[in-house]
């Protein structure tokens, strides 16, 4: 069993109106240093034998994201990993499939 964690957001060039509204709200609450709020979707997909980065990428491209307007990144966690990973460096992003295994 392995869980793939996928984050889908609007591409940088696309107006994220919801993100902007949240940013305004944060500013109103006094968090004026906030400069860029992006709203996206988070998905967890669990499979018995895990997923290859290529397969995950294909899943995102065909269905979980809309490549015209969205980009995605993902990582894979093995079962019973209680801690959420803290990534450093490159993440798998967009159409360049690279998976990061978190141990």
């Amino acid at each position: 069993m392995a869980t793939v964690r996928i984050i889908v957001t609007l591409k940088p060039g696309i107006l994220d109106a919801a993100g902007q509204a949240v940013q305004q709200g944060l500013h109103a609450l006094g968090y004026e240093a906030v400069t860029n709020v992006r709203i996206g979707r988070y998905l967890e997909v669990t499979l018995p034998d895990g997923l290859s980065p290529q397969e995950t990428n294909e899943m995102c491209e065909r269905f979980l994201a809309n490549p015209l307007i969205e980009e995605w990144r993902f990582d894979v966690s093995p079962p019973r990993t209680p801690r959420v990973s803290r990534g450093s460096g490159g993440e798998a992003r967009g159409t360049k499939p690279e998976a990061r295994d978190i141990h």
Binding site: L10, I14, L15, A17, A18, A21, N66, L68, I69
Partner: peptide, 9 residues
Amino acid sequence: GAMLRNHVL
């Protein structure tokens, strides 16, 4: 093409 949320949210 694709659809985004209405700009008025």
